[in-house]
Amino acid sequence: MKSRLFAALPILLSLKSLLLISCLFLWSCDGTDDASTIIPGNTVTQVVREQASISTFSDALNRTAVNAALNSQNTRFTVFAPNNEAFSIYLQANGYSTLEQVPAAELQTLVNYHIGLGRYLAERLDSARLISTLGDARLSVYNTNNTISINGAAEVVQADFEARNGVVHILNRVLTPPTQTISGFIASRPSSEIPEFTLLQAAIERAGLTALLSSNSQSYTLFAPTDAAFTAAGYTSPEDIENEDPAVLQNILAYHLLPGYRFSFAFQNQEVTTRQGSRVRIDANNKTIKGLGNPEAASIIAAEQDVLAINGIVHAIDQVLLPE
């Protein structure tokens, strides 16, 4: 059945995918190059095909509708291509023996997530840069001691295979596309799972922040208090949350939001301004965060840190942060 899915892939592609590919020919680059200028040489598809170490990724491109788009003369791409070893690890971890066993829709989403819009040579892959992808998601770049990492999960092991319509970088891991927004992750969390976020979900709804944390137009890092943290702060049940003034909850929750993607490995010892407007103190060494009104710092729960969402990052913490 799965093999037949691949045979029928051109028919199974969604209208959204087809429209996206069509739109790429009208999409303008980020200003690095003049998209109307044809640069001699191979396209990014041809560059990928020539590299033996990423032949599995090349096969993945061939099984999707992306190849045609990547041959465009009018768009610039940055392709983050996992090497063959990375794909072997991915296939094994997900219960597949071969690439052909990966469902068509899953493979399409996976490939799209590895193709950035715009041309970014290694010298432009600086820390905290966000790169939009073909899959309508974003990649977060960090550059530490000349080691470039993507989403804190994969490193660039070979860089700058230049093409006339972009550049290819080789990764040592396959990137896993996020499937939920911050709001969606909190809402879908089973109440039996530890740490629990039942009270946080109630607070988000009561404060009217569901739309904000569901939007892909802005990215945030949410320090998410557990149910135990809310209980210690005096909110012992959803009823307590419902009886609270929404403005109070909105003020508190905004104090738990930082702009952008903040992975724990990239923390620095510093004070950072929150969406609420006041600052919190981050201790990178101890992985803690302290509010102005907290006598002690809250600890980030190691088992639930760096949760990647479509629109940001979630870190579970063991206290509610208080602005005053």
Rank of each mutant, 00 (worst) to 15 (best):
R138T: 00
G260A: 01
S127D: 12
T176V: 09
G293N: 01
F57S: 08
A104F: 09
I186S: 08
R262V: 08
L5T: 02
P40N: 01
F263T: 06
E106A: 11
S188T: 11
F197G: 06
N165L: 04
T43N: 13
N151Q: 15
V248H: 10
Q218R: 12
A211F: 05
N145C: 07
A153R: 14
N165K: 02
Q201V: 06
G260M: 11
L321F: 05
W27N: 13
H169Y: 06
I241M: 10
A207Q: 02
H315Q: 02
T64R: 00
R129E: 10
I282C: 02
V272D: 07
N243V: 00
R63S: 08
E85V: 14
S188E: 13
L5R: 06
I204C: 07
L91F: 05
R275S: 05
V156N: 09
L322T: 06
Q218F: 12
Y120S: 02
E242M: 14
T274G: 01
T43H: 09
S53T: 15
D59H: 12
N216I: 11
Q92W: 00
N172V: 07
D306E: 11
I282F: 02
P40G: 01
Q276M: 05
R119N: 15
N151S: 02
A128I: 08
R164A: 05
D34Q: 03
I300T: 05
